[in-house]
Amino acid sequence: MAELTPETVMRVAREFYDYPMNAETAAAVAKIADAMLTDARRLSALGLDGVEPPFSYATMVAEAERLRRTLSGS
């Protein structure tokens, strides 16, 4: 798997986040991000086929209710 280059990191940061990053920082960030991507690939070993992400509709509704109360001041 190709490694992230500092140039790619700088470009993503600038174009996606409007965030300037110098080459030295980008090189450090690329190393960290590469390690995280390696970690993500390793998760395949867990056999996650059929496992759904545990994002809960109940939590979304509870958060919406909290926001509604905040907005209405009640």
Binding site: L43, V51, P53, F55
Partner: peptide, 24 residues
């Protein structure tokens, strides 16, 4: 700072896969 910045180039699929791993 680099720990926060590092997440800028992590695909959403990596995050979702990690959340699925938590269920496991």
């Amino acid at each position: 700072r680099p720990l926060v910045e590092g997440a800028m180039v992590i695909p959403a699929t990596a995050y979702i896969r990690a959340q699925r791993a938590r269920a496991m």
